[in-house]
Design a protein around this nucleic acid. Sequence first.
DNA 1: TATAAAGTTGTTATATTATAACAATGCGTA
DNA 2: TACGCATTGTTATAATATAACAACTTTATA
Lengths: 135, 135
Amino acid sequence: MTQKIDFLSKNQQIVLEIIEKAKEPLKAYSILFSVQKKGIKAPPQVYRALDRLIKLGKIHKIESKNAFVACKNDNCTISNATAFSICDNCEMVTEISNPKLSKYLANFHDETGMRYNKYNLEFFGLCKKCKKNKI
Amino acid sequence: MTQKIDFLSKNQQIVLEIIEKAKEPLKAYSILFSVQKKGIKAPPQVYRALDRLIKLGKIHKIESKNAFVACKNDNCTISNATAFSICDNCEMVTEISNPKLSKYLANFHDETGMRYNKYNLEFFGLCKKCKKNKI
DNA sequence: TATAAAGTTGTTATATTATAACAATGCGTA
DNA sequence: TACGCATTGTTATAATATAACAACTTTATA
């Protein structure tokens, strides 16, 4: 129940709240615009908060969109294993939480002997709605 | 043997060559700088070539780095399934071609009923060399 | 208490990445 | 030829992100 929100600074809380309320991934500058009434005035303030929230696992960055979403998993405190599905048409983004998938990827290792401690996976396609409406 | 390079325009060939020669992922503006002696003067010329080459599957974009690498698979003509391993220390990027992995991901479908036609996966960790030197 | 250390914030400026918009050119083909 | 169409060149600007440093807060410690 009690989130680690106590450990967040004022700006971090402001930024986190706005991302959590949003229904879609938010861009940094749209966040900046939204929080100007709350006293955050400049890009570095937003980007610093975003960086911190990412490290804490509170939010994730959708790399292919330069946008940010809240982590759907309440207990999430790390950010080392992320998977998303992204609709090419309506741009909807959903975090995938599939234990089999995460297990498979966490255990994956290739021929080079490199071992991974982090991954990010982005799937693209048409969501159910868009598939219906377009075909 | 014969590549589809015949279908590339002049600028596309120039950009592809420089990416293929490079040992690491190249940024768009570093490409721009390198090809100015060949007559390419402005960002849109580079970005247009990059877009085309990506569509053709000749190169891939490393989303977490905003950088571009040549596809290692000679026969690659599509760009819908990519996986990379990225060293957090030396920034080395390697394209993973692991049939089991690609099969697994190509067949993956989640509970939402969404079906994917494309994915991009980026693994992070320490490469063999860096692991040795740091630990 | 005071004062250092570390972290957070605010601020200005600027770097980096990417695209809009439109004119000019070349090229196949009807 | 003259049309359509893709590619190219060009200028300007949009969008994304960070450097650098001063001010302020909190905590830690002498």
